[in-house]
Design a protein around this nucleic acid. Structure first.
Length: 774
DNA sequence: CAGTGAGCGAGCTTCCGCTTGACTT
């Protein structure tokens, strides 16, 4: 063994090994192998911010293996990605594996082809310490911010909270959007639509008035004024229009489109993309680059030519405009563009097809359209109706793919218009003025939040999904569906010279999977905005990124950059810790009619709660947790008082008290020292004694059944090759045991009546799958 | 595994970015 090549990803290692042949062994570092120690700050501020690195727990055995491989290798090639993090990974490898910088080869390639890799091997360099230092600065800054602010939140608001350069700004976006929505005053307006017909034809023309009316009176007056009017086509304008395809997918745009077109969460998209990547169907899925390799461009051209014809080909190179993009990889694309679809489970197939279409469309010709705008004049009025139509002259990339939008009101009312010359007289067939409301700005979805973060240059492709799950886990935000609000709206129709008024009940737009801030999210955000405005600034990341770039260019020293940030920052930390008030988001709801004491809603150590009485008096106040769906801001006095109804004693069963309450794991019934969880549809505030007894009995029966099961299992189905085939019930359901190995049983199969033949079939099939994988 | 919330004090929590696995029945 002469050469050892180390890359970041095992899938990449497998591919490269094939290109390099016998003289090379390719191993993977699985990302970073070393990081700041988890406990405490692990940055020696006194010693000029010396970082204390440690091999990550889950990498110890890997590092051992790498060490062994290094010993038997003549030359070591560090081939991690060509960006800040990749350079740091290479450096950490060099340090940890005690490689000699003079003989260690640093190589990079951002296209996994034989040519690119061989070219890289011929052009090795040494590790770029400036780039490594830029990464160290990034790492140290994030640790300082996160580990100094978080403890302040623990002491001033609630334990186990967190703050960080990325997550806190993500929460800020959601809190501020919610505030905008709260301040938004929805106003009604009237939109007038009409249907015309040329007097000597049956063609129909759908048009809309260029103006809206603010109230019903004006709308009605306008409709009245139309009675007896004549209408004609006053202007026709036709102009060419062309549309360009969207660039190939990056992580962020893939997440957005998969959310809009397939309804995937950001995490789901990444999970499915990972599977596609590991099966070799697509290129790497964590990327900020829209660039396609020459190989891919060539494949696309060939594929489009053969499928759609040469006139559909237009080779395009896209430029990445994203702030702070590092472009260590290609855009996300199929590895083989001749495969329009793949034979795989549904989610993988659908995501793959989306990627295929987007990639191919990006290399196709513009769509050529003809847009016609028609204006219809009203005799005796300055107002005009208008309609637009679009005709596709050449479909180009539209043959394959059209990008979606987030706009909920996007009705794409464009249609083909009949050809009518200017001056054509029109008869009005019907006309309606309908009431609508102005819409508040939309709440973020996971995907639109990712887009916003990317626009601000905050976060990286590998962190978008984890960031969202962090702020969900901390309960700063929640993801919810909301029904549209019901509204009464007025519609006025012009019929036989009269205006008919009709009231309709309408539902506004339903919101699905939208992000809402919680009480805690709002209180933490207010606190951070008050005390750490610079970190919360939307430009903070962009500003420090400029410093990191200068470090990478060798123009600045990383420790100095950190020092000029840290000195004022740390002073602010100390001051905030000493002087700021404990923050609970407390709100006075009113007076308890029974005790005459004040009732508050606020944040406590374990979440939001309501409180009767004061905390700074001798007499202890009474507390009760808030139910799901209640918030400090909207809870009423009555709702708050009702929360004190627990625990309730419902009566007796088998001569013992039956009580109901809410515990750590949800609502429960307690009887004779035992606990029984309430069902999903049971409300602890109203549940009856009868229902509680039913719950107790159901659980008792289930437990008895389980006991009986234990007696029956493990069950011997039969013998094969002198070994027993057993069935059993475990934590994850029924399974078979044979020759010391376990095999999952499908839910539809009964582990007791299964025959030996059936069991052996399952075992054989599972065995085949395993050997295939290897 | 079925509270808590005041106060006492121990010991715990926390960042972002790079990569997969997982006692997988």
């Amino acid at each position: 063994m002469k050469n050892l090549v180390i890359v970041e990803s095992p899938a990449k290692a497998k591919t490269i090994e094939k290109f390099l042949g016998k003289d090379y062994t390719v191993m993977s570092s699985y990302g970073h192998i070393r990081d700041l120690a988890k406990k405490e700050m692990s940055i020696d501020v006194e010693a000029d911010y010396e970082p204390q690195y440690q091999i990550s727990d889950d990498k110890r055995s890997l590092v051992n293996e790498l060490q062994k491989a290094v010993k038997s290798a003549g030359k070591v090639w560090l081939a991690s990605d060509e960006d800040r993090e990749g350079e740091a990974i290479a450096w950490h490898l060099q340090e940890t594996l005690k490689l000699d910088p003079a003989t260690t080869q640093r190589i990079v390639f951002n296209e996994i082809t034989k040519t690119a890799i061989l070219h890289a091997i011929e052009n090795p360099r040494q590790i770029d310490m400036n780039l490594v230092d830029a990464q160290q600065a990034r790492r140290v800054l994030d640790r300082l911010v996160g580990y100094e602010i978080s403890p302040i939140l623990w002491s001033k608001i609630k334990p186990a909270l967190s703050a960080g350069r990325v997550q806190s700004v993500a929460v800020r976006l959601i809190v501020e959007r919610e505030n905008e929505i709260k301040d938004f005053v929805s106003k009604p307006y009237f939109r007038v639509t009409a249907q015309f017909r040329p007097v000597d034809s049956t063609k129909v023309l759908h048009a809309e008035l260029g103006n809206h009316f603010e109230n019903e009176k004006d709308a009605e007056a306008f409709l009245q004024s139309l009675v007896g009017s004549s209408f004609k086509v006053s202007r026709v304008e036709t102009k060419p229009l062309h549309r360009t395809p969207a660039p190939p997918f990056t992580t962020s745009t893939l997440q957005q489109e998969a959310s809009r077109k397939l309804g995937f969460s950001v995490a789901r998209t990444m999970q499915v993309a990972q599977q596609l990547y590991e099966s070799g169907y697509i290129t790497y899925m964590r990327t900020d680059s829209v660039n396609l390799s020459d190989l891919a461009l060539g494949m696309a051209k060939k594929e489009i030519e053969s499928q759609y014809g040469a006139e559909y080909v237009k080779t395009r190179r896209y430029q990445t405009k994203t702030k702070g993009a590092q472009e260590a990889h290609e855009a996300i694309r199929p590895t083989d563009l001749t495969a329009q679809t793949i034979n795989s489970e549904s989610a993988q197939r659908r995501l793959y097809e989306l990627i295929w279409k987007r990639t191919v469309a990006s290399q196709m010709a513009d769509a050529e359209l003809e847009k016609t705008e028609m204006e219809i004049s009203i005799q005796g009025s300055k107002l005009t109706f208008g309609c637009t139509g679009e005709q596709v002259k050449f479909d180009g990339f539209l043959k394959v793919y059209m990008e979606s939008t987030d706009d909920e009101e996007d009705e794409s009312r464009e249609r083909l218009l009949p050809r009518l010359p200017e001056g054509t007289l029109l008869a009005m067939e019907r006309c309606e003025a309908s009431e609508h409301w102005t819409q508040h700005p939309p709440r973020y979805t996971e995907a639109s939040l990712v887009k916003k973060l990317e626009d601000l240059g905050i976060g990286r492709p590998s962190t978008y999904a984890p960031t969202i799950s962090t702020i969900l886990k901390r309960e700063y935000i929640m993801k919810e569906d909301r029904e549209g609000e019901e509204r009464k709206s007025v519609a006025l129709t012009l019929q036989d010279g009269k205006v008919i008024r009709e009231e309709r009940t309408e539902r506004g737009y339903a919101e699905k999977g939208k992000l809402f801030p919680t009480d805690i999210g709002c209180v933490v955000n207010d606190f951070l905005m008050e005390h750490f405005a610079n970190i919360m600034d939307y430009n903070f990341t962009a500003t420090v990124e400029r410093d990191f770039d200068e470090i990478a260019d060798g123009k600045k020293e990383w420790r100095k950059v950190i020092d000029s940030f840290y000195v004022p920052f740390h002073k602010n930390i100390r001051q905030t810790q000493q002087t700021s008030q404990r923050t609970t988001g407390s709100r006075l709801l009113g007076v308890d009619p029974v005790s005459g004491k004040n009732v508050y809603a606020k944040i406590g150590r374990y979440g939001t709660l309501v409180q009767i009485g004061e905390t700074n008096t001798d007499e202890k106040p009474r507390f009760a947790s808030m139910k799901k769906g209640l918030s400090i801001e909207t809870i009423t006095l009555e709702e708050a008082l009702s929360l004190f109804a627990l625990p309730r004693t419902l009566g007796q069963f088998e001569e013992k008290d039956v009580t109901v309450s809410i515990g750590k794991f949800g609502p429960y019934v307690r009887h004779n020292g035992k606990f029984y969880s309430l069902g999903k549809n049971d409300d602890p505030y109203t549940v009856t004694l009868e229902r509680s007894i039913e719950i107790i009995n159901v659980k008792r029966e289930a437990e008895m059944k389980k006991e009986e099961m234990k007696k029956v299992f493990p069950h011997e189905i039969g013998q094969k090759d002198g070994e027993a085939v057993m069935s059993n019930i475990g934590r994850f359901g029924a399974y078979l045991t044979y020759k010391g190995e376990n095999f999952r049983l499908d839910k539809s199969l009964d582990p007791l009546t299964l025959t030996l033949d059936e069991a052996m079939k399952i075992i054989d099939n599972a065995g085949k799958k395993k050997s295939k994988k290897k």
